[in-house]
């Protein structure tokens, strides 16, 4: 080397690159980290758990290590009737999302309320527990917070699971959404400038706190799904569509997801995809009048997870 100009150049290079990083990494991260969680962000964290991609708890993305969302119509302890309430059950050992583990994720006010009102600080991964998303109005401003119902109301994990009128495995479903690459074509991001009529309200700044990965997608080859279950709440239609989209939407280019049904259907019978395909081709070519029946999926099948995730997008 030995040239003064290269020494100067190297220093300038370092200065230029570092200041670029300060402006594009450090400053935005300060700004974004200061954002307060919305109720949506709290619900998403409690539904999806720690991480929906590759993690220690779920190396092969089978949807393990995830909380369970349940709908309660009666109090799990007393059995008394109550308004429909969504509760998020973390069985012992299930990893907590970032917001429950670190005090800088939820935003100052939400964090303070979650501790003072919600007793969130008493929760531990090793013992698990039941969580709710609650809110408090102060001076006309509603602030959501995480409530650790096991501490505040005495709701145990088993009691809550037993009292559930509906069990939604959307946490495991989001792992399927990531693994199967749904987000390569379906965005979860209605755009601010349009999309309001077709796809509904765009997300706001605080809707993502603690969620990872956000998978809102960049390339839209298919409809946005952020509020899909509000547009189409038919489980039957969705089931047919997942099995073979061409059954309900002849021009669709979506791949079939029939293999997510697994080897057995709900009644325990074997699923023969090759035979199904033969019958479908016959139907498509006009040789038979009716398409083959789509098997009912088993409760622990991967398609059930994915269905629960999609039907939970409201």
């Amino acid at each position: 080397m030995g040239f003064r100009e290269y020494r100067v150049g190297s220093i300038l290079f370092g200065v230029a690159l570092s200041s670029s990083m300060v402006i594009t990494m450090y400053m935005p991260s300060l700004d974004i980290s200061g954002v307060s969680s919305t109720a949506t962000a709290l619900e998403k964290q409690l539904t999806y758990g720690r991480n929906s991609g590759f993690t220690y708890g779920d190396l092969f993305l089978h949807g393990a290590d995830k909380p369970v969302k349940v709908i309660l119509k009666k109090n799990p302890v007393t059995g008394a009737k109550m308004d429909e309430t969504a509760a998020y059950v973390f069985t012992a050992g299930t990893s907590f999302p970032s917001g429950l583990k670190h005090d800088n994720i939820l935003g100052e006010k939400v964090q303070a309320l979650s501790v003072s009102m919600g007793k969130m600080d008493q929760a531990a991964e090793a013992t698990g527990g039941v969580f709710l998303v609650s809110s408090k109005v102060t001076n006309g401003v509603e602030t959501p917070y995480v409530e650790f119902a096991t501490a505040t109301r005495g709701w145990g994990v088993d009691a809550t699971l037993n009292a559930a009128s509906e069990t939604i495995l959307a946490g495991a479903g989001k792992t399927m959404f990531v693994r199967e690459g749904c987000w390569w074509c379906h965005t979860l991001l209605p755009e601010q400038t349009h999309d309001w009529q077709s796809f509904g309200r765009p997300p706001v700044l605080g809707d993502f706190n603690g969620e990872s990965p956000t998978t809102f997608g960049s390339d839209r080859k298919a409809p946005d799904l952020l509020h899909v279950a509000s547009r189409n709440s038919s489980v039957e239609w969705m089931t047919l569509h997942f099995f073979n989209p061409r059954l309900v939407q002849p021009h669709s280019i979506m791949p079939r997801y029939d293999y997510l049904w697994g080897p057995k259907d709900k009644a325990g019978n074997d699923i023969d995809l090759a035979k199904w395909d033969e019958e479908f081709v016959a139907y498509r070519d006009g040789e038979s009048v009716y398409p083959p029946e789509v098997p009912e999926y088993a409760d622990d099948s991967e398609i059930r997870y994915l269905m629960d995730f999609v039907m939970n997008l409201k």
């Binding site: 594009t24 970032s98 990965p213």
Partner: peptide
């Protein structure tokens, strides 16, 4: 394990 918009922004960064 960074999350939320920080993670989304860094992905595109």
């Amino acid at each position: 394990h960074l999350t939320g918009l920080n993670e989304a922004y860094m992905t595109w960064w």
